[in-house]
Structures are given as C-alpha cells and as structure tokens.
C-alpha cells in the first residue's frame, strides 16, 4: 500500500515545547484522525508538512515528494483547511475565485461554483459575513477545486454546530470514495474521528503515543473500575491514569493485561475520549510522584 504521507523522525523544538521523533504514515485511500491535547504539537506537525515551519531533523514526504524541496508541487495537489479563514474577508467568493485561479495548474472554476451551490454559499456576498460553518465550507470548496489528492484539515470543526460537523463528515466521506486520495484531520472532537477515521495518530507532549488503525486502538484498551484493594500488585504498574475516588478507582488498561483479573473488577471498552483523558491523568500522576519523591 502506497503512503500518501510519510513522516519519520520529525524533531522540532522551540521554547518550552518540542516535537520528539514523530513518525507516522497515512496510506492512500484513507482518512487519518490526528488527536491530542491543545499544545501537543498537532498544528506544528501540520505546518511542518506544509513547509510553513522549519524542522530540526526528520523527513516528511507527501506523494513521495520531499516536503521541503518539492513543496510547491505538493501544494498544487494539496488542499488545506484551517480553523479560521485565510481569505480576503472583504471580497466575495466570486472575487476570491478570480484571485486563486491563476495559481493552480488544475483549477476548475465550474467545480468551485458547483460546490458553492451545493454548500449553499452565496457567491456575491462578502465572505467576512459568512458564519463560521460557511467559512469552513468555503475553504473546503477551494480545497476541492484544484484536483487536490490530499486534504489536510487543522481543527476544522472547532466552534461548529453539530449540523455543520455532520456536513463536514459527509463531504470527507464523499471525497475519500476515490481510493487515490487521502485526508488528514486534526481535531479535539473524538466522536468525529471515531465515526469516520480509518487511522488515528495520538500525539501527547510532542510524542506519538499511538499510530495505527483506529479499530486496533479501540480493541486495545479498556477502562477498569472497582475497589482499590482488589487490584493485584503485578497489575498496578500497568494501569494508566489511575484515579481513586471515594467509591473505588478508575484506570485505563490494555486489554491484553485484563487476563486473570478478579471478577470483582469491572471493565468496559475504552473509547478515544477515555484514552486521551487517562493519558493526561497519567501525566499528572507522574508529575505528582516526581514532586513527592523530591
């Protein structure tokens, strides 16, 4: 399976923050959800892919091309949607189309206007007056109008109502029907990822915590609950994000480690939200442990 996007050994540090040895790949024909807390490095990674940020080390290739040396060709074939509009707010969609057209070898005006129509976007109204959902759809219309084979979205649904989010998922679903395309979208809204993503990469503190098929991840973790006393010693260190409260405890555990646990402990399948929450809790626990050790 050919990879439409390949990142290996990406390192970038600035100030307090660093991306450490980030590596993941997206095969052609699939959608990858890119999740992680605020500040985990998702936007930086995306900007690195687009050569909008310089990296300390590592290699990124898109369509098999180098992200730095071939960035112009990559951008001809890539559509990008950010969480806020990057087009002239005082212009209409029609005027913007005129502006963008000359830059793309494969710009299709009729496709653009067809999209505007199906997204119900007026072509003669100042785009600054569009609602957030409409602005997002405008960016998508642009992304879809130059035969882009890869679409990258950075928090496209932040601040959108459920209807607009649903519409976006529908658009992406339709887009990926062509198996030569790919989608990478970073988001907080794990429900969207669970619904439509084939692959998922979880970024935590600048490192890749997991990358692979979403189904695999879903089957790999469970949330364990029960009385603290019932936890066998050997299992204690395998718990992630342990949290004790008055009536018992909760923690994330790999399904592989569930074998042989007492029946008094209950577990249920973990979803993506759970995983993110417990990863964060684990961090907090580690920090407390460090502080206490000192």
């Amino acid at each position: 399976m050919e990879n439409i996007l390949e990142i290996s050994g990406l390192n970038k540090s600035y100030g307090d923050f660093a991306l450490k040895d980030v590596s993941f790949s997206l095969p052609k024909g699939y959608i990858m959800g890119f999740v992680g807390q605020n500040g985990s490095g998702k936007t930086t990674t995306i900007r690195s892919i687009l050569n909008m940020a310089k990296t300390d080390s590592g290699k990124i290739s898109v369509f098999g091309l180098d992200s730095v040396n071939d960035t112009i060709e990559i951008k001809q074939r890539t559509g990008v949607v950010f969480d806020s509009l990057y087009l002239a707010e005082h212009l209409t969609a029609k005027q913007i189309e005129k502006q963008l057209k000359p830059f793309y070898n494969d710009w299709q005006s009729d496709e653009f206007f067809k999209r505007l129509k199906s997204f119900e976007l007026p072509d003669n109204k100042k785009v600054g007056e569009f609602s957030k959902g409409m602005k997002m759809k405008l960016m998508i219309a642009v992304a879809l109008s130059h035969k882009a084979e890869l679409i990258i979205l950075d928090e496209p649904t932040s601040g959108l109502d459920p209807v607009a989010r649903d519409e976006l998922l529908d658009i992406l679903s339709e887009y990926i029907e062509d198996e030569n395309r790919g989608v990478l979208f970073s988001t907080h809204i794990t429900a969207d990822v669970e619904r439509i993503a084939d692959y998922v990469t979880i970024l935590h503190n600048g490192k890749v915590w997991f990358t692979g098929e979403l189904n695999t991840l879903a089957e790999s973790y469970a949330v364990l609950k029960g009385a603290e006393e019932d936890i066998p010693e050997s299992v204690k260190e395998k718990l992630i994000g342990f949290h004790a409260y008055r009536n018992g405890f909760e923690a994330l555990i790999k399904t592989d480690d569930l074998a042989g646990l007492p029946d008094s402990l209950e577990y249920e399948k973990a979803n993506l939200d759970d995983i993110l929450v417990y990863i964060a809790k684990e961090d907090k626990n580690e920090r407390h442990a460090e502080n206490n050790a000192v």
């Binding site: 024909g29 699939y30 959608i31 998922l169 529908d170 679903s173 339709e174 990926i176 029907e177 198996e179 619904r195 439509i196 993503a197 084939d198 692959y199 098929e213 979403l214 189904n215």
Partner: peptide
C-alpha cells in the same frame, strides 16, 4: 466497500473489515 462507507458515513477500514 467505499460506497457503503460513504452511505453509512463510517470509515472505509470498517466496511472493509
């Protein structure tokens, strides 16, 4: 596989499975 994924608005890997 892809049509079904589109119709149900779920991932391609799921319908493939």
């Amino acid at each position: 596989i892809r049509q079904l994924a589109r119709d149900l608005k779920i991932s391609v890997i799921t319908t493939t499975r």
